[in-house]
């Protein structure tokens, strides 16, 4: 395990959950771990110490690579692991969410996230991470790759050269998290208007609608399965 594993040991906890889930479905998915071990071995053989950490999440392989191996990881995945298919590239902000302004502990309609910093599968070096998933359409396996992004100067290597489809995903990630991608041909706004300020998916960016008018919340939540009623179709 890497040196920056958080004290909570979140990686192992996630592993336990996975095992529990696998117990329920294990009969259906035989020898998945074996295949993933093979994937990991090949990835590690190519990247060397570029692989920082790995974990298993819900039966899937999650590999964290060093930021300077990020693009190399993509090309290795594409050429060596036969992962010809790019599913997505996305960012994540591990900063604890701000506690809800209302009742302590949150009300049922407003989930309150724990206030301590915890990192997900395969850990993280800091607040921001970029993660991506590549898959093989021939061998039907897939791997989730993660890399750390420096909080003060958030940037990662671009995958566009390897997977042209990463273009839009990286643009989205750039505008949502403010993470720049080195080597991206034109990093400009994708969803948001070009004059938009801020990075909406960062945890410190408030959901403005809730700031203006608090969610009525409790009115909706009733039964055990949370039988919330949709307010009618809007399509």
């Amino acid at each position: 395990m890497a040196d920056e594993t958080p004290p909570e040991g979140n990686g192992t906890e996630a592993g336990e959950v996975v095992e529990a889930a696998e117990g329920a479905e294990g009969a259906e998915v035989p020898a998945l771990g074996e295949r993933e071990q093979a994937l990991l071995d090949r990835l590690a053989a190519e990247l060397g110490d570029g692989v920082v950490e790995h974990a298993e999440a819900c039966g899937d392989l999650v590999v964290r690579v060093r930021p300077d191996s990020w693009r190399r990881a993509a090309s290795v995945a594409r050429s060596e692991l036969d992962c010809d298919y790019l599913s997505f590239v996305a960012g994540i902000d591990w900063m604890p969410a701000e506690p809800f302004r209302g009742a302590p502990g949150g009300e049922p309609s407003q989930p309150s996230q724990p206030s301590d910093t915890a990192y997900g599968a395969a850990g993280s070096a800091g607040r921001f991470q970029v993660f991506a998933r590549v898959q093989s359409t021939t061998d039907h396996h897939g791997v989730t790759l993660k890399t750390d992004v420096d909080e003060s100067d958030p940037r990662a290597e671009s995958w566009v050269e390897v997977y042209p489809g990463a273009d839009w995903h990286e643009r989205e990630c750039w505008e949502m998290y403010g993470i720049s991608f080195d080597g991206h041909p034109n990093l400009r706004h994708l969803y948001l208007p070009s004059e938009f300020q801020g990075h909406p998916l960062r945890k410190d960016f408030p959901l403005l609608a809730r700031e203006v008018k608090p969610w009525p919340g409790l009115v909706d939540v009733e039964g055990p399965a949370g039988s919330d009623e949709a307010a009618g179709g809007d399509a």
């Binding site: 309609s109 989930p111 945890k203 959901l207």
Partner: peptide
């Protein structure tokens, strides 16, 4: 993606 962070699973 932002909205899901402010809502419980059933919603």
């Amino acid at each position: 993606e932002k909205l899901t962070e402010y809502r419980p699973y059933p919603q």
